[in-house]
Design a protein around this nucleic acid. Structure first.
Length: 322
DNA sequence: AATCGCTGCAACCGCCTTTGG
DNA sequence: ACCAAAGGCGGTTGCAGCGAT
């Protein structure tokens, strides 16, 4: 006896979702929240199984999703995280706000795998491919020097399976400095609130140099003082970042066009109507008032990706310091 | 213009894990 | 502790879109 299917598929629709179905699902979830996916299709008036509804919501309809290709910074994160975690796409996705496991998995299979192979790197082991295979003759002139740099900067991958935590963050930090323009690109897509209107805190403004916590192997008498100082700084940075989010959200709430604020290009006129806006408005205010943690980025969209990334870095650094 | 092959992505499938009684 | 239901996850598939011929 096999496992029973998650739902009776007789009479249920499959295949691509229509705009009307999307609208029904979005309105239902914004009104009622996410609970009991099995019951969602019936209550929302959809001829779909609950699993299909959950997938559609998490992979496509969630307001906080980023659209478009992964930035170089995100790609580097994926590569490094994959080296550490393997094909645990959901874990990898949890480190990339606004991206889904499905999206990352697809991007890995269609883009990154090829790039790595072209560079002579085994995408499974992250080690150099055997030279017997046709060597990438254009390796020196590879169009992906940044990816090559990532691999060079992660020599631990070849030395040990136990990856020390700081490596990812060091790579991420360097990459983030290189890729500030990528983040700007995301923000440029948001028409209603220009980047200069956001109380942006750059890394150089808020991040204390913490290389000592990750790279120094020697301990000296000033370490305790340094750590205490860094702890205070990190706490201050967290407060500052949260304040920035608070200010940005206040601006967002005052806007009437959430469709552009939250996820430009995703919501079209078929989906966005007054009821939708009202529901979203209510949800955003509810969640924001009750939750100012890093998780708020899952509600407030791509703008917060930058802040949440900074916050994650900060939280991790704090964790290391404590 | 028609056909073919390739690519990328949304959606599905089935197994595994978690949760609640 | 056990079991069933629901949710979560990773692998796979189907198909639309696109460029080459």
């Amino acid at each position: 006896m096999g496992r029973q299917p998650c739902c009776d598929k007789v009479g249920l629709k499959q295949g691509p979702w229509s705009a009307d179905e999307d609208k029904k699902l979005v309105n239902f979830i914004l009104t009622n929240g996410q609970c009991c996916w099995r019951a969602v299709p019936k209550l929302a008036g959809l001829l779909r199984c609950g699993k299909s509804c959950r997938l559609r919501w998490t992979n496509y309809l969630r307001p906080d999703l980023k659209r478009g290709l992964l930035s170089e910074y995100e790609e580097k994160m994926v590569i490094d995280l994959h080296a550490k975690l393997g094909n645990r796409w959901s874990k990898i996705a949890s480190n990339l706000p606004g991206r889904t496991d499905n999206e990352i998995k697809n991007h890995w299979n269609t883009h990154i795998k090829k790039k790595l192979k072209k560079m002579g790197i085994d995408p499974v082991t992250h080690k150099p491919l055997p030279p017997t295979t046709t060597p990438p003759t254009d390796q020196e002139s590879s169009p992906q020097p940044v990816l090559a740099q990532v691999v060079e900067e992660t020599p631990h991958l070849e030395k040990t399976d136990v990856v020390p935590k700081p490596v990812i963050n060091e790579v991420a930090k360097d990459a983030q400095q290189d890729d500030d323009q990528q983040l700007d690109f995301c923000m440029d897509d948001i028409p209603l609130i220009e980047p200069h209107e956001i109380p942006l805190l750059t890394d150089s403004d808020i991040l204390p140099p913490l290389t000592s916590s990750s790279s120094s192997s020697s301990s000296n008498s000033s370490n305790h003082e340094t750590l205490a100082c860094n702890q205070n700084l990190v706490h201050e940075d967290l407060d500052q970042s949260l304040t920035s989010i608070d200010q940005w959200c206040s601006s967002a709430f005052n806007s009437t066009n959430y469709s552009n604020v939250i996820n430009p290009g995703l919501w079209d006129n078929d989906v966005v109507d007054d009821e939708f806006i009202a529901n979203l408005n209510m949800l955003l205010n509810d969640e924001y008032e009750t939750n100012t943690s890093i998780e708020s980025d899952t509600t407030f969209g791509p703008h917060l990706t930058h802040y949440s990334t900074m916050l994650m870095n900060e939280e991790w650094k704090l964790e290391q310091l404590l």
